[in-house]
Design a protein around this nucleic acid. Structure first.
Lengths: 186, 186
DNA sequence: TTTAAGATTGACTAATCACTCCACAAAAAT
DNA sequence: ATTTTTGTGGAGTGATTAGTCAATCTTAAA
């Protein structure tokens, strides 16, 4: 892991614990094991660093949930795979997920262009479009469906995070909530 | 409106625009039309002020959505009334709603006791309990249902906020999304 | 009228912060 | 071998910040 990534990782942890403005750049550098100067060599401003952490996480999430539909797979099955991959990533990367939640509700979100924000929801959007055409999902505005699904995952995440279920019970609940979501949109 | 409330209102607006740590107390005092000293006379620390804004909003929301079930009203109808009151409050108080979103995803949430946080969801919780007993809602954990419903409302809010529908279309969509949610939990 | 308690002010301070700057080291290009 | 580019460190800086304080004002009870 190079210094640039050490900085991103350290920043991520501290931002989640103390908030964006609550963590001084000096603490980030210290925690990353680099000097102040090095931090500002890679990121011109603190704002730039905050956005970089966001992009870094989104790229990571995208690479972990980049699943292609297999042969002989129904849209529902493919959809379920995407849903579960997303939720399992969130549960196994709580720090990253919490950062994202904090980021998208903060004024920092405005620093990320519309294009970048849309980029990461493209696969799900394509899948939804197909599902509506195939009449397996109700003909609602795509952005509404997307918003409802992200929020739904958020809700399940928050519940699972505060409950202390074991792995098996967790999987069972994720399955169950997918059915709930499908009841809603299908 | 007394000075104390002026401070809360000014803090609310600035926090939403610039984030918690992004808004200096001096700016809050200035915007509220009071002196620095007055602000700290009412709130010993900035953290205390942030929490006070949260409680202030929650109390306001609670007073606006405190609806009692009428005679000859099904649970579904009562539930829908609560749902719509909540969503309409969010839409007509975007600043307050955004503040809450920002607050609950931030480390500040930990400064509010569990008891206070639960207090405001009690009415909905009671209603859900009855609905499960009456077999009109699926027998899922109450905290899961609560989490799913709050998140659902969040999702609808975010969609409506970014779309530019007129009042009628908005109402129609709120009705439609209630049905979606009911399909999910009922 | 006197008195006491709270409300209000704004200058002040000690600490902190984002960011700069320059010296130097490592690596890469020539 | 020499030059250029890039990476790294850390002391330093000017601006900003949360919070204090002593002085004044307001209110209302005694």
């Amino acid at each position: 892991m190079d210094k640039q990534e050490q900085i991103l990782q350290a920043a991520l942890k501290l931002f989640v614990e103390y908030g964006f403005h609550g963590t001084p750049t000096s603490k980030i550098a210290q925690s990353a094991g680099v000097s102040n100067g090095t931090l500002f060599h890679y990121y011109k401003t603190k704002d730039e660093l905050v956005v970089a952490v966001y992009i870094y996480i989104k790229e990571h999430l995208a690479s972990c949930t980049h699943l292609l539909p297999q042969e002989e797979m129904t849209l529902r099955q493919y959809f379920k795979q995407l849903y579960m991959a997303w939720l399992k990533w969130a549960l196994s990367h709580p720090c990253e997920y919490q950062f994202t939640r904090q980021f998208v509700t903060s004024p920092y979100l405005m620093k990320v262009s519309q294009g970048v924000r849309e980029k990461y929801s493209a696969p799900l959007l394509d899948c939804l479009k197909q599902a509506i055409d195939g009449r397996v999902v109700k003909p609602l505005p795509l952005s509404l469906l997307l918003s409802l699904i992200s929020s739904h995952i958020d809700g399940v995440y928050l519940y699972l995070e505060s409950s202390d279920l074991d792995e098996t019970q967790r999987d069972e609940l994720v399955n169950r909530t997918f059915d709930l979501m499908w009841d809603m949109i299908g």
